[in-house]
Structures are given as structure tokens and as C-alpha cells.
Amino acid sequence: MVLTRQLDPITVAPLWPDSVSIAALQARAMLDSGKATEADFAEVASRSRRNALDNPKAQLAWDRSAEEVLSEPYTVAPLRRSDCPPITDGAAAVVLAAGDVARSKVDRPAWIRGIDHRVEPIHLGLRDLTVSESTRLAASKAGVADGPVDVAELHAPFSHQELILAEALGLGVDTRINPSGGALAANAMLTAGLVRIGELADRVMSGEARRGVAHATSGPCLQQNLVCVLEGEEA
């Protein structure tokens, strides 16, 4: 209900559309455009929760196939329960430091090589909901394409949004998406983006990933998007 109060207060909010219904409009647009199928959504939902099995901080983790997800009834068609994030209490904190201070604190700092954020109109009718132009622009400004992306932590609260974001970021098959389980495994909404940066930083600092992308979103149907490129130093 609070998210409904985020919409245009004169023309949209008085209709009280809930956040899942708003996201479902975008999912429907994906299907109608032929860019994805419900099976694609289910695949994201299944993989995210399976990845979350390795994340002790995740709220929702399980091992079920995409076929099992597809057998669920719709929550708000075409979205099923597993296409939607859990309701989460959570907080995150990240400490930033520059240059030698960072080097003195950790063996392998996760350097911010690029960070940018862009916004789009809030009105859904003014946007092509099947693409994320603001993410594409932010990715370009942040230099995502300047090197290989080992890991991407994407703030995609709904399964179909991962597909939109992966395309906007230009991610290929070599990129591991949301090894933490992403927002589908825990979505303390306005902190979920910072969690993505923290999850990626952990993987870069540990050496598991050399270079990666973290993403955060805000507003209905991916209205505003932030892209952050993190990179470790070669020893």
C-alpha cells in the first residue's frame, strides 16, 4: 500500500494499484512482445532460489525446478508466487574508503570503476516496459562493456525484470547472475540495491570474481536504475 502512494497522486494512486499488479503489467508486456515466455520467468525464479541455498543471509531458498514453478497458480497473472519477492525485514551497510586507506584495510579492495544512475518518467504509458533505457544509459556511463563481467548482482524484485536488466546491461552467457539469489531471495526493498553492491564486493574481495556489475532499482517497473562496476586488483 505504501508503494501505491509512490505513484502519481492525482491520476494513478487513487486507483490503488498494488505493486505486484504494476509489475505484472510489465511481465505481460514482455510476453506480448515475444521477448520472453512464462517458462523464462520460471527459470529465473528457480535458479535464484537455488542459488540462495548457498547464501546464509537469504530469506527464501529452495530447490524446485522451473516446471514446478510453472505449475503454481497465478498470483497476479502472468506472475506466480515464485516470480515475486518475499516480504523482508533487513538492513545493509557498506564502508567506502579511498586509495591507500582501502588497501590498508583489505588485501583485495573492490574498486568502484564506474557508477551511474538514471531515471525515466514514472508514467508507465510513456515507456516501453520491455526494455530499461535508464539501465542501458547508466551501464554505458559506468563502462560496463569495458571489460568482462564475471558476476552481476541485479536488483530485480520480479523474475521478468532480471531478463530486462540483463539485456539492458548487455550481459552474455559468461556472466553469472545473482549468485546470492538476488531480490527474489530477500527483498528489504530500499536496501536491496545496497545488498547487491555488498554481495558483489564480497565476491570481488574474495577473488571469486575479478570484475562485476551491481545494480539497484527504484520506482514502479524499474523507473530509476543505478549501475556500479566493481573490480579487483591483480595480485
Binding site: R5, P9, V119, I122, S134, G219, P220
Partner: peptide, 25 residues
């Protein structure tokens, strides 16, 4: 936000302030 009852009104005001495609926060 309680003053006007719009949560994070910057999101809906971004249209009026010509923010499309720009950083806004």
C-alpha cells in the same frame, strides 16, 4: 513524505523537472 502523502515524490516529480535520462536523486 507524510506532509503530502506521496511516498518518495521525487519519482513522480522527475517528469516535471525534465529528469528523463538524467541522474536524479
Amino acid at each position: 513524505d507524510f506532509f503530502e502523502g506521496v511516498m518518495m515524490p521525487e519519482l513522480f516529480l522527475s517528469d516535471a523537472l525534465g529528469c528523463t535520462g538524467k541522474p536524479m536523486f
